Simulated assay, not measured.
Amino acid sequence: MGDSGRRRVVVGVSGSLGSLTALHRAVGEARRTGGELLAVLAWEPPGGEVAHGRSMFSPPLADLRRDAAERLLAALGTAFGEAGPAVPFQGLVVRGTPGRALVETADRADDLLVIGAGSRGAMRVLFPSAARYCLAHATCPVLAVPPSPLQNELVSLRRRISLRLSLDAQEAADDRS
């Protein structure tokens, strides 16, 4: 086990529905194994490192890091409210790409890295996922959590709203039962 004698359960958190689903699964794994949860939010300057270094009007890195910390706290609040996850945990804000930040954080053989599996649509070719990076590069076990069943329903609902199609609340309720 790690330095604390507990298994570390490392989970990527962005605030997306997929990451919140993974976060809840990670809490369950930490509880089941008596482990410690490390909730990681990765961040990069807007436009990437090179663009940030070249721009005269880039926001200070301290401000960007603070914003990332606030996003992590908001995601934890959304997932657990004021009660918190009810397991020992740390929130980590790591500068870098999500996949690399997660793999570098989950650097012990006895760690468990929990990630949201992300979308399975055509866009994954254009936007490589952190999940794929983690599965290819992690040196510890990786648990890829599939998207919540609600995610497809939310996407469908957003599409209907953006197309200004009518919404029938009774029909939606009937679909859920």
Rank of each mutant, 00 (worst) to 15 (best):
Ala109Phe: 04
Arg95Gln: 15
Ser119Asp: 13
Leu167Cys: 03
Gly99His: 07
Asp107Val: 04
Tyr133Asp: 06
Ser129Pro: 15
Gln90Ser: 09
Glu153Met: 09
Ala131Glu: 04
Leu143Asn: 15
Thr97Phe: 13
Val94His: 08
Gly96Ala: 10
Leu150Gly: 10
Arg132Thr: 10
Gln90His: 11
Ser162Tyr: 08
Leu143Met: 14
Gln170Ser: 08
Ala106Pro: 00
Ile161Asn: 06
Arg160Phe: 15
Gln151Phe: 06
Ser156Leu: 09
Pro141Gly: 06
Leu154Ser: 05
Pro98Trp: 00
Thr105Arg: 09
Arg158Cys: 02
Phe127Thr: 12
Ser156Arg: 10
His137Arg: 11
Ala122Phe: 13
Ala169Cys: 06
Pro147His: 01
Arg164Gly: 03
Glu153Ala: 13
Leu150Val: 07
Ala101Trp: 10
Gln151Pro: 04
Gln170Trp: 03
Leu113Val: 11
Asp168Phe: 07
Pro147Thr: 00
Thr139Met: 11
His137Phe: 02
Thr139Tyr: 07
Val103Glu: 12
Cys140Trp: 01
Pro88Ile: 03
Leu126His: 11
Thr139Ala: 12
Ile115Gly: 02
Arg95Tyr: 06
Gly99Thr: 00
Asp110Thr: 02
Leu165His: 09
Asp111Trp: 00
Leu92Arg: 15
Val103Lys: 07
His137Met: 03
Phe127Gln: 11
Gly91Thr: 08
Leu167Asp: 07
Glu171Leu: 09
Val142Arg: 12
Ala101Leu: 09
Leu163Phe: 07
Leu157Lys: 02
Ala117Arg: 15
Leu154Lys: 14
Pro141His: 12
Cys134Gln: 14
Leu154Cys: 05
Arg124His: 07
Val94Phe: 01
Gly96Tyr: 04
Val142Leu: 15
Leu102Cys: 02
Leu135Ala: 09
Val94Asn: 06
Pro141Met: 09
Thr105Glu: 08
Ala136Ile: 11
Ser119Ile: 01
Asp111Arg: 00
Leu150Arg: 14
Ala117Phe: 15
Val103Asn: 11
Ser129Phe: 15
Gly91Ile: 04
Cys140Leu: 00
Gln151Tyr: 03
Ala144Leu: 12
Leu157Ile: 05
His137Gln: 08
Ser156Ile: 03
Val93Arg: 10
Ala138Gly: 13
Leu163Trp: 07
Gly91Met: 07
Met123Gly: 07
Gly118Phe: 06
Arg158Val: 04
His137Asp: 02
Ser129Met: 12
Gly91Gln: 10
Gly99Asp: 02
Pro149Thr: 00
Ala173Met: 08
Leu167Pro: 02
Cys134Tyr: 10
Arg95Ser: 06
Gln151Leu: 09
Val87Phe: 14
Val103His: 09
Ala144Cys: 13
Val94Arg: 15
Pro85His: 11
Leu113Gly: 09
Gly118Asn: 03
Arg95Glu: 08
Ala109Met: 07
Arg100Asp: 08
